[in-house]
Every structure is written in structure tokens, then in C-alpha cells.
Design a protein around this nucleic acid. Structure first.
Length: 598
RNA sequence: GCUCCGAUAGUGUAGCACGGCCAAUCAUGUCAGACUCUCACUCUGACGACUGGGGUUCAAAUCCCCAUCGGAGCACCA
């Protein structure tokens, strides 16, 4: 019996079985469902020491997605309790709120930790009274030595009254920085050294950047304490955070136990790195690539072998070598795309990541690994002028993506599709771009933009007004007046030969008659000729067009665009045969556009 | 060194709590073709993975053990 008959037969006997079979095949969309015992309260808790990054977007989106789905409450809480080393930026508070709203994740409540220090003091005092916390005067190294030896420090057994007294003195500024800390009493013999008697408060005399707070406090809570107290005060029921904070839970549970509170449910996700993959030019990849390890321009090693560090003496950093002594390497496949591969099994190796953020690939190509830049690293680079600001297209912030014309829905979907895995991932923004392209392609007008322009004189052509569709699926036309001279791209010119026939898109056909200077003659307007001869179709721009500059993650493109682009300010358009861009500014100097993606 | 976590195609995911519907899902990517006055979009097809080794079982991606690799924490950072 053929399968169709089977289905028919089965349908008549047991229709529910068919339904079940089909249902089974349907993939789960979106985030995994939650098993809730009560109302859902979640928080997203950044330190506003810089604008939200692509990594922050994950937290914003996932938290908001769940609270939307289960009619819960979303709180944004600024964990700004370090006025010194991770000093908050005043502008960043609003940047977070703004980017959240843009992402469709407007929080129900906004909490600023530095406004609520007094509440943390109350809890601290109670903990001291209960014997769950003590003021410690050990020097850092001294305490670490004791801790590693599972030994208590002399202050641990101090009476509660004495601790209370010291605590008051801490609050009133009676100690210098580094002189005293408040520790939570856990288990000094805990098998995990990360858990043993952790610090809840330290003394910082640097004033807080927020004028409302200023120098009001000199005892500041650390994240583990502030977070523990706030999560309880806010009634948080589910916490999703990075794997790096898993130990926090174990530490914080001691506070919850002393106070008789109930700890929220927790979920974790792995480390995220972003790599940009699209900087390989096609000619740098051949299908039958030979693989080398390249360090500082030198070839080492042979493919399909692990690369041993003793074969390489230059520029290998400690972090690039795993504990087996193999270099952590990155490869690309014969298909030409790049992937990070674990060095645990043989793989055609080509390159080495180096600590300075670059990956070497063969001799020609360089890939920037933007995901590796930390907020503080970015801050420094911006101050030094390496980047123009927090929305420089090369910088991995939400602001930069916005400026480039990425739609919030695309970013949301991208983050939701990542899911909640505890696996460490290294991802490519390609998927985000593909998602975004689907959204903007149907609504983006088309224009010509010629980068690295080369003038082309056409004999026998009459000045005319070219008509081209604003969008291939719509009927509105754009009009481009053109004389006997046009501009074309250097990259198109480079491969031209005398006698070659080509089509200037939406204009007419030409035959090349000279290369330097570039000359051609008019040979008609007939499209059939183009189709018959399979002539190349290239785009062009009038010499008196608009000056256009495109800023993209991999550099600047300067050229000339057709008139009309200036009407698209703040919109995303497609520069044909170039890619999508967002028109960022228009003035007498010309047009500045931000590259969205191909 | 101590502790914890993880491992499915190039990339990211689904499946794992309850072993058979899994010769393994979806997206992206790559290749080929169709469409097209763009290298965009759309459509069709192809490619491509359970880290390794043992064990339990009639049956293992799924449970157990070991190995390997990767990541994180052990801060008066968040």
C-alpha cells in the first residue's frame, strides 16, 4: 500500500493518531516554556557604565519575552554600586531605557540601586545581629591565604555587638578604603573556595557620579549583596543570568537562609562571542585551499595536524594554548565559510586567534573580533579616537545597530532564536542580517551609488533622463538626468576589456572603446541584446550627483550617488549591487550613510 | 591548584527530565538551478552533525562511568 493510502486508511480509523504524528514534527518556536508556580517577576540588571551592547540585548529580549508571554512584571534595575572601578556613566541610564523601549521591552518598573543604599544597610545590620556577618580587618592577601587554607580569620568570631559598633564606624566614614569590609559568614571550609566568607560591603570614598547620591555613602555593597537583597525586595521569581554568576547563587543563599527568605528560580546562559565573518574577499578563498597556520605573516605547520606551540615561537599567548599544549585554532571549510573549531579533533587549521582581537587567515585576510571588546576597552578606544563614539558602526552596541538600520524585530527574533543554552557560543551576525533583510527588502527604495568612481565618456549618446523603478516590485519610478558622461565603479572597470559590451542599468547599452581614459560608444537601448549576449549589467551615477560617504564595520566607502537619495533621510535604502544602508545625514557636504548589511 | 558548568552540521538551535516515533528539527550558510534590467528579494534542489571510549538495555543523541576538549568562578568588578 502506498503511503497516501496508508494515511487515508489511518485517517478513517484513528484521525487523532495522524494529528499527533503531525504535531510531533512541528518544531518548538520561541523560548522554552516555563513551569510557573505563581506570578512571574523578572529583572534585567545592568551596570550603566556604558551603553547596552549586543550582549545586553539578549538579557533585555529574553526577560521581556517571558514577562510578556506570561503576563509578568519586568523590572530594570541599575546595579550602579561601584562609583570607582566600574563607574557608571550618567548618560547610560537613559540609553538603557531608550534601547529597551526601542526593543519593545519597556520595563514596568525602574529601580536604581544607588537610591536604595539605606535599605541594604538595614539588612546588613540585621545580619550582623543574627551573627551572619562580621566586619573584617584583614588585608586582602592575608585573608586569601587563610581562606585557601580553609582557616577562619580572627575577626570571624567577634561578638555581634562589637561588629555592630565597627559597622557603624564603617558607615560614618571612620575607616579608610581597604581598611575594613563586611563579610557574610558562609562555610569557611566549603569545598568551593569561591563560596567562603565573601565580601558584602567595602569602603569607597570616591563620590558617586549621580548628583542625587554624590558623597552620601562611603560603604558600598558588592553585587552579590545588593542583588541578593534587591531580588528579594522586588519579589523576583525568576532570574536569568550568565553562567559566570552561578556562584553568586550559592553565596547569596546564605543571606536568604539567615533572613528566612525564599530564593528565586534561576536559569543561566553561556558566554557569547561575536565574530564578523564577511570580510573575506572572494579571491582570498579558493575551493582547494591549502591550510596553513599563520602567525604574524609567517606560515607554520601543516594542515590536518594540531599545531604545537613549540613549533611557533612568535606571538603566541598563553590563552591560545589549551592544557594539552595545542594551539586553539580556527578554520574554514572548503566551502569557504569560517567556523571556530575545537582543537580536540583534527581539522584543517588555518589560523590562530591572538589576544589583541585579531585572527589571522592565510596571508591576506584579517577578521575583527568585535565581540571580544569589553565595555571598558571600548570606552578607552573611543576616548583615544579609534572609534567615533558609542554608535560607531564598528562597535557592538545596540545604538550602533540602530544607527545602521537594524530593525528591533530582527534583533528580538535573533536573540530569541539563540535560546537559553548554557553552552558557550561564538556567533555570526549573519543570521541577524538575514532576518533584518527580510524585513527591510520589501520597503527599501533602490538607488545607485558608485564607490571609487571612474569617469566614463560615451560617444554617440544623447543626454536623457533615465527612469528606473524605486523598488523592483512597485511601479513608482525615479528619474536621473544624465549627459554623455557617467561614473562607474573602479571594481567594475578593473575587469573590463576593449570591445566588451555591457548594459548601464536602466539606461542603455555600450561597447568599451578605450581603457585609459575609459571610453565607450553607445550601441542602443535594446534589452534583448543584453539577454542574448549575457552582457554584464552595471550601475552608474551622473558625474554631478550627490557626494556620498558610507560608514561600515569594515571601513569607509566614498563615492557618488544619484540625486533623490537626499529625500530618504533616516530611512533604509538599498544601494544596488552594494547593500542596504541607512541615510544618516544630508547636508551641503553631501550624504552620510551607515552600512546595514549586504 | 580548588570548585562548578557545558559538548548535536560552517554557525546558532530542536530533540535529552519520561530510552524505541531520530538514517535527527528549524534557521542561517555554501553550491547548483529558476526568476530578475542589482551581486537584493523570492522559489526549487543539493551539502552538512549526535566529541571519543566503555557500560546498562531487545533498543541509547537521550541513562551511567571514564577520557578529551571548551568555558566560568576562586576580587574590597559588574
Amino acid at each position: 500500500m502506498p503511503p497516501e493510502s496508508w494515511e487515508k486508511e489511518l485517517n478513517s480509523i484513528a484521525p487523532e493518531l495522524i494529528a499527533e504524528l503531525k504535531e510531533k514534527k512541528e518544531p518548538d518556536k520561541g523560548l522554552p516554556p516555563l513551569e510557573l508556580k505563581g506570578p512571574l517577576v523578572m529583572r534585567f540588571a545592568p551596570n550603566p557604565n556604558g551603553p547596552p551592547t549586543i550582549g545586553s540585548a539578549r538579557g533585555i529580549v529574553v526577560n521581556s519575552e517571558y514577562t510578556k508571554k506570561y503576563h509578568g512584571k519586568l523590572i530594570i534595575r541599575f546595579d550602579d554600586t561601584d562609583p570607582a572601578t566600574k563607574r557608571p556613566m550618567l548618560e547610560a541610564y537613559d540609553w538603557y531605557l531608550d534601547d529597551c523601549e526601542w526593543l519593545g521591552a519597556k520595563p514596568n518598573e525602574v529601580i536604581i540601586a544607588s537610591d536604595r543604599i539605606a535599605k541594604y544597610y538595614e539588612v546588613a545590620e540585621e545580619l550582623i545581629k543574627k551573627g551572619g556577618a562580621y566586619v573584617c580587618f584583614c588585608e586582602q592577601e592575608e585573608f586569601k591565604a587563610l581562606k585557601d587554607a580553609k582557616k577562619a580569620c580572627p575577626h570571624r568570631e567577634e561578638a555581634a555587638e562589637k561588629n555592630l559598633e565597627s559597622w557603624k564606624k564603617m558607615l560614618s566614614g571612620g575607616y579608610k578604603e581597604q581598611e575594613a569590609v563586611l563579610r557574610i559568614k558562609t562555610d569557611i571550609t566549603h569545598k568551593d573556595p569561591a563560596i567562603r566568607d565573601w565580601v558584602a560591603f567595602r569602603i569607597i570614598k570616591t563620590p558617586h557620579p549621580r548628583p542625587q547620591v554624590g558623597d552620601k555613602y562611603c560603604a558600598w555593597p558588592l553585587l552579590d549583596f545588593e542583588g541578593a537583597v534587591e531580588d528579594h525586595l522586588l519579589g523576583t521569581t525568576l532570574i536569568i543570568r550568565g553562567k559566570d554568576l552561578t556562584d553568586s547563587e550559592t553565596r547569596q543563599r546564605y543571606v536568604y537562609k539567615y533572613m528566612g527568605w525564599t530564593y528565586p528560580e534561576t536559569m543561566h546562559w553561556g558566554r557569547v562571542q561575536i565574530h564578523y565573518e564577511d570580510l573575506l574577499s572572494e579571491d582570498s578563498i579558493s575551493k582547494e585551499t591549502e591550510y596553513y597556520l599563520v602567525v604574524d605573516g609567517q606560515k607554520y605547520g601543516v594542515p590536518k595536524q594540531y599545531v604545537r606551540p613549540d613549533e611557533i615561537t612568535t606571538s603566541l599567548y598563553e590563552n591560545d594554548i589549551n592544557n594539552k599544549g595545542y594551539a586553539v585554532a580556527v578554520g574554514y571549510t572548503t566551502k569557504g565559510n569560517i567556523g571556530f573549531k575545537k582543537a580536540s579533533k583534527p581539522y584543517p587549521l588555518v589560523e590562530l586567534t591572538s589576544k589583541n582581537g585579531f585572527i589571522m587567515i592565510s596571508e591576506k585576510t584579517l577578521i575583527k573580533n568585535l565581540g571580544k571588546l569589553s565595555t571598558s576597552g571600548l570606552k578607552k578606544a573611543i576616548a583615544e579616537g579609534v572609534y567615533t563614539g558609542w554608535d560607531d558602526p564598528r562597535v557592538p552596541t545596540i545604538r550602533a545597530l540602530r544607527r545602521r538600520g537594524i530593525r528591533p524585530e530582527a534583533l528580538r527574533k535573533f536573540m530569541i532564536d539563540l535560546g537559553l543554552g548554557e553552552t558557550d557560543i561564538s556567533l555570526s551576525l549573519d543570521t541577524l542580517y538575514a532576518e533584518n533583510r527580510k524585513l527591510i527588502d520589501p520597503v527599501s527604495n533602490r538607488y545607485f551609488f558608485v564607490w571609487n568612481p571612474v569617469p566614463l565618456e560615451i560617444e554617440g549618446a544623447e543626454p536623457k533622463v533615465a527612469k528606473a523603478p524605486l523598488h523592483p516590485a512597485k511601479k513608482e519610478m525615479r528619474e536621473i538626468p544624465v549627459g554623455t558622461k557617467v561614473l562607474v565603479c573602479r571594481s567594475d572597470v578593473d575587469i573590463l576589456k576593449i570591445g566588451e559590451r555591457l548594459r548601464l542599468k536602466d539606461l542603455y547599452n555600450i561597447e568599451i572603446t578605450g581603457l585609459s581614459p575609459l571610453k565607450a560608444k553607445f550601441i542602443g537601448t535594446d534589452m534583448d541584446l543584453v539577454k542574448k549576449e549575457k552582457a554584464r549589467i552595471i550601475h552608474w551615477a551622473p558625474p554631478d550627483g550627490l557626494k556620498v560617504k558610507v560608514l561600515s564595520p569594515d571601513g569607509e566607502y566614498n563615492g557618488v550617488g544619484e540625486p533623490g537619495i537626499e529625500k530618504e533621510l533616516d530611512k533604509v535604502v538599498q544601494f544596488e549591487r552594494f547593500g542596504f544602508v541607512r541615510i544618516d545625514s544630508v547636508d551641503s557636504e553631501g550624504v552620510v550613510a551607515y552600512f546595514t548589511h549586504k
